[in-house]
Amino acid sequence: MSDSLSPLIRAVEAADSSTLLTEAVQNLAAARQTGAIPTLIAALSYNNPGAAVAAVEGLIHLGEPAVPALIELLDLHNYTARSWAIRALAGIGDPRGLVTLLGVATADFSLSVRRAAARGLGMMKWHWFPADLLEVAQEEVLEALLFVAQQDDEWVVRYAAVVGLQSLTGAVDETYSEWRSRIHSQFEYMANHDQSAAVRARVWMAQQQIQAGAIVPPVEDRSPLSSTDWQVILEGLYSRKGQERLVLAEGDPRRYHGLAVSIAQKTENS
């Protein structure tokens, strides 16, 4: 740990009021150093919204190195800490958060969690995905975001789904014209019929930006995920798909078995 970080961490530990704690966490987050991660993670459990917001922002800036600790937090039975961790994962866009985000975007009790998840699903680091897994993952995200856009009662969650769908449109390969046209139809419908003027306006902006070809420039950094990570993601998607099938009878989960083997081989070799 660098010398500049120690006093910032001690300030968080010593803070004896809500305001001081928020300020200390803000200062620590602003340092943008990976050594701050354990303290920022701990701040998600303090039951202090100001400190948690600052910690989430700091963790999002630090990105990938914070992901394993955030995933660990998901398994603890602390609902508040878990919801902050999900918001951080949504902001980072790491594929290891994908299955969790898919689950909460459509079902979490808290609208701020659904909102963050819907935006985060569209902004996954799609360029990290192995080609075969990309299709499966994007299809799941598409279904989840269309569901949220159509069904969520809260304007802000539908707004976030529009943002997510716009990002997804930019990431989907040109060859998947059916997916693009489903997003297009959903936007057409919402542009006139969503009951919230704010959501309709966001749809208009999405339509105009998609038409103008305003797409986020591709990022070329390489995936730091191990083959085990991808296996876990695939198994999560597989189990989701299996659950859906009980109700929807859509898609055949068996295709994922072959895919799992081929991804394992490819990532081992690379």
Binding site: V53, S112, W155, V156, A197, A198, R200, A201, W204, Q208
Partner: peptide
């Protein structure tokens, strides 16, 4: 909270939307 900021900004947005004809 971001939730409250978003509701506040929604008010600004709705006022702006009234200034132009959709879309």
């Amino acid at each position: 909270e971001n939730s409250l900021k978003l509701i506040s900004l929604k008010g600004l947005l709705e006022k702006q939307v009234l200034l132009t004809s959709p879309p």
